[in-house]
Design a protein around this nucleic acid. Structure first.
Lengths: 225, 225
DNA sequence: AGAGGTTTGTAACACTTTGTAAAATACCGT
DNA sequence: ACGGTATTTTACAAAGTGTTACAAACCTCT
């Protein structure tokens, strides 16, 4: 059964969606402000979130950021006309899809199914645990272990390692490491990523083999040991 | 660079999209019927497909099915106004997204970026192993061994050897070695590939026999030992 | 076979990128 | 504001890559 959380202050809309989505085989809950939305969203009971941009108190963007801080749960944003689509879908915010109001509930159902299908495909291992050899990472609880032993990483090291693990076996460019892990573009003579890589290599046993340098390109996590 | 294939019989629309998507940093090609669309889509040169539902000859759904038969390339369907059912069908048939006509090109660009970002994340693809005689290469773990013994190659040497191994038994032109391994065009008096080949020959036991010079063309890995 | 031109092999050097220690700065909870 | 941690900058060493130069191999034409 797919549990959907709707976060919208329009109570009538929530009831209507509840009714329609139940017919489509979803199970629906609703809350009406961003703060409770963000709290509920990450409690692990839902498979997808429908999140309105305009909310009383904390707005939808803040809620989105807060949720993305600890979860990759599929999120559809309900936007007002004219909102900046690029930002909503972009890495900055990280929504999976959006739907401009007013919308047809059938379309919401279709998009919900689509993003849930995608996220199902993505997480071969349902519980969103990343595993590469003896390295195990749980992004939701921000824990990493090597061969069962917990290791302590700083948040930047964590972000970099997460990116590398999500692309294990393939090179990740420095550009995208800066962009996605540090949230800023790579500038000339900027060496921070190199420094963090250096630290990671030292912290992870066998790190110098695990994290390979692809000169002129970036870094890569090796798949086989 | 991201190559996009547009499959739509509306030539004006194609030109407009071409223009707009180029501004957004995509590289665009267009074909105008489903049959060529399906053929082009799977040739490996594109990172995403924009596919109209209404096409002369083979319609968009057939093309979609055909493409999905052999590729998981990201596909956005362009649907006619009003046909929710078609849209839903499209998503259930394995399109990654859809956009009802008429649409804002910005929205297409945003959705393209979104699905490409997703598919980039997904491709933790199975690690293939390349074998040519006693040479074994695992690109995902960046390891090469000769007769079971690991050898250490630099990134460029690795890239060149990978290309040669993927085309073992056939000549690989210097042009494509420069283009694909060094990521730049071959310029006059540029000898770097020759240097790297020289190093490779020295590092690989029996390298002078293994890597053959095809004068005036390029280099080739011999199949027999 | 030999002359003359072109392409390739490789050593030596020049330049670029990366590794990492250490210092400087930013950040955060108290 | 203070102390501790995290991150970025700086500086220099080490490794990798590109350029130059010349010798060797090859091709073409006579």
């Amino acid at each position: 059964m797919s549990n959907i959380l709707i976060v919208d202050d329009d109570i009538e809309l929530c009831e209507m969606l509840d009714e329609y989505l139940r017919l489509e085989g979803f199970s629906v809950s609703a809350v009406h402000d961003g703060k409770s939305g963000a709290e509920q969203a990450v409690n692990g009971n839902y498979q997808a979130i429908v999140l309105d941009v305009m909310l009383p108190g904390q707005n939808g963007f803040d809620a989105l950021k807060q949720i993305r801080g600890s979860s990759l749960i599929p999120i559809i944003m309900l936007t007002a006309k004219g909102d900046d689509i690029d930002r909503i879908l972009g890495l900055e915010m990280g929504a999976d899809d959006y739907l401009p109001k007013p919308f047809n509930p059938r379309e919401l159902a279709a998009r919900l199914k689509a993003i849930m299908r995608r996220s199902e495909q993505n997480s071969g291992n349902a519980s969103s645990v990343l595993e590469v050899g003896k390295l195990v990472m749980k992004p939701s609880s921000r824990k990493v272990s090597w061969d069962g032993q917990d290791m302590s990483l700083t948040s930047t090291e964590f972000a970099i390692l997460e990116l590398l693990m999500r692309n294990a076996g393939a090179a990740v460019s420095k550009e995208s490491l800066y962009e996605k892990a540090l949230g800023r573009p790579l500038e000339q003579y900027d060496r921070s990523i190199d420094m963090h890589i250096s630290h990671l290599r030292r912290k992870i046993p066998g790190g110098e083999h695990l994290i390979q340098t692809i000169r002129g390109t970036g870094y890569q996590l090796t798949l086989e040991q």
